[in-house]
């Protein structure tokens, strides 16, 4: 099975986010990025599929942040056969534009499956995975929690709510928006990532600037007021325990 995996970085959720002076974007100067958690699951599931059914995994990414190249080297260290960086200075891009670029890159590769994280925290105008599927006219399933090869195609488990899941059988090629791999994403030793860095296996290909746009215009961004609803209890744990016990009694 030849599998393409789309990888993205997103602002580190742990960091405190600040807005730029214009107020319509994040202040990107000191922003730290991390690999989109769901994309890591997509990579893990792709690697597991490859280990199960044979074939190879190719990782794609775009963006200028240092974390992007490191992410691709990590993918190589984990077992991706090749890692491809699209372009050299394209960000931030909206989801439609990303889907266009990824679609171009993936089209010629005769891939059996394209795996991507089901969502990313900065996708304002839709999910890249599903937009890519729509662009390429491929069958698609999102919120995938299980994938297994099944007579020439894939058996895919999709998660609804309340713990209910549905199983589908899909023909190849297919696009999957992965929610969770069957096991947590594997760890790869830093030494191996260094090796991948030194091996020079990372490829960079030029891409033409995308034509698509989101069709949206951001007019304002703000940090929502938190704790506006909650009445905060002050004091130490003893005072808090008193008050909470009282509240619980009243509520019942």
């Amino acid at each position: 099975m030849n599998i393409a995996v789309l990888l993205r970085v997103v602002p580190d959720p742990v960091e405190e986010l600040e807005l730029s002076s214009g107020g319509t974007d994040l202040d990107r100067d000191f922003l730290g990025f991390v690999v989109n958690e769901f994309d890591e699951h997509a990579l893990e599931e792709a690697l597991l599929l490859k280990e199960e059914a044979g074939g190879s995994v190719t990782a794609f990414a775009l963006g200028t942040a240092d974390e992007v190249t490191q992410m691709l080297h990590t993918a190589l260290a984990k077992g991706a056969a090749s890692a491809i960086k699209l372009g050299d200075g394209l960000d931030p891009l909206d989801a439609h534009a990303q889907a266009e670029l990824f679609a171009e890159a993936v089209k010629g590769g005769s891939f059996d499956a394209v795996l991507c994280g089901v969502q990313a925290s900065d996708e304002l105008d839709g999910q890249v995975a599903m937009l890519l599927a729509a662009r390429l006219g491929l069958p698609h399933v999102s919120v995938v929690v299980g994938v297994r090869p099944a007579d020439g195609g894939l058996r895919v488990t999709k998660e609804y709510w309340a713990g209910i899941t549905a199983e589908f059988r899909v023909d190849l090629p297919v696009v999957l928006g992965v929610q969770a791999a069957r096991q947590p994403p594997r760890y790869v030793a830093v030494a191996k990532i260094r090796e991948a860095q030194q091996s020079g296996a990372l490829q960079e290909i030029d891409v033409t600037a995308p034509m698509s746009a989101s069709g949206l215009r951001v007019t304002a961004m703000r940090i929502p007021e938190t704790a506006e609803g909650a009445e905060m209890i002050t004091g130490d744990e003893i005072a808090a325990a008193d008050r909470i016990a009282e509240l619980i009694r009243e509520a019942r």
Partner: peptide, 17 residues
Amino acid sequence: AFQALTRAGNSFGQPAK
């Protein structure tokens, strides 16, 4: 812990800043 250390130089997952 290792991932946090790689990312931000501390094992707590807190920003380096």
